[in-house]
């Protein structure tokens, strides 16, 4: 059994519980073992870096230090956490003053940085380590005729991501491997507004609306996401946004792992599918 270290991030223990459930379900099904990083802490997302640069290095660095105690790559399902962890790793290599600052602070708190694991997004790991061939092999219920758009979001592909920052391909390829019909979508890596949704909703509403409207126009039945933040903004606020801009129609926002699970024959409840604010029952009728 291949083993990875798992950094779920705060959301997956709360608002994105469904993501966590489907991740564990699918990877279990693929005989991949996840070991949760012991005593991990919040990555600081985009908030801590806005307030205090050193703290924003310290938070992810502590996770990297804890993860370094075990073996295996560090797999991260959340785009924001992925970017935070990867960026700190990058900074620690590139900037001597950051590296020394972090190590010095750690030494005063009994923490040592013995090494750093490879930080990889869950999608990256599935594409590169599991591979499309294996995924196709595991599909028992192809998502035939399910029309989707894949929405990678920004921090999966920028600035240090593994896919093309303008026109990411991995999620499209994975969804096609599951049998879904992937529609052309120009906003694959546009931004969902992230935390602006709370502080400046007028900005975030417009961003989400633009994404949802294009998805509807190209005829998508669902939007597939790789990040709990994207999911929350697109799903939970969809009602309010529709009201504000007088839009009709609702689009379910689903995690890619949930569709993987369905295609591989796992049950809806096992994958947390009922937890979407916008129900996906209708869209999924034809496959389940």
């Amino acid at each position: 059994m291949v083993a990875y270290q798992y950094y779920p991030g705060c959301s997956l223990h709360a608002s994105a519980r469904d993501y966590d459930e489907s991740v564990r379900g699918v990877l279990g099904h693929l005989a991949i073992k996840l070991e949760e990083v012991p005593d991990w802490n919040c990555c600081g997302a985009t908030i801590t870096p806005s307030l205090n640069q050193l703290q924003s290095q310290i938070l992810p660095a502590r996770n990297l230090a804890l993860a370094a105690e075990n073996r295996g790559d560090l797999v991260v399902p959340c785009n924001a956490c992925y970017m935070s962890l990867k960026k700190v790793q990058h900074n620690m290599v590139k900037y001597k003053e950051i590296r020394e600052g972090v190590i010095d602070i750690f030494s005063q708190a009994g923490l040592s940085l013995t090494g750093m694991p490879e930080v990889r997004h869950l999608l990256e790991m599935i594409m590169e380590d599991v591979g499309l061939a294996k995924v196709k092999e595991m599909v028992t219920k192809p998502l035939k005729d399910l029309k989707i758009v894949s929405y990678s979001g920004c921090q999966l592909v920028r600035p240090l991501g593994f896919d093309d920052p303008e026109d990411p391909q991995a999620l499209d390829q994975l969804m096609e491997a599951l049998g879904a019909k992937v529609l052309p979508f120009s906003q694959k890596s546009h931004c969902c507004g992230s935390s602006l949704m709370t502080t400046q909703p007028e900005l975030a509403f417009k961003m989400v609306d633009s994404i949802l409207e294009e998805a509807k126009k190209v005829g998508a039945e669902m939007v597939v996401v790789t990040c709990p933040m994207c999911q929350l903004n697109l799903d939970a606020y969809q009602g309010q946004i529709n009201n504000k801009f007088n839009r009709t129609g609702q689009l379910p926002i689903i995690y890619f792992t949930q569709l993987m699970g369905l295609a591989m024959g796992l049950s809806k409840s096992q994958l947390g599918i009922q937890r979407g604010i916008v129900s996906s029952n209708k869209a999924l009728e034809k496959i389940v």
Binding site: A14, Q57, A109
Partner: peptide
């Protein structure tokens, strides 16, 4: 999808210490 129990790290002392030093 809402958790009301407050999650936290076990080694809060350590975390608070490094955050304070950074501050």
């Amino acid at each position: 999808r809402a958790a009301f129990s407050a999650p936290s790290v076990r080694n809060q002392v350590q975390l608070q210490k490094i955050m304070k030093l950074a501050q």
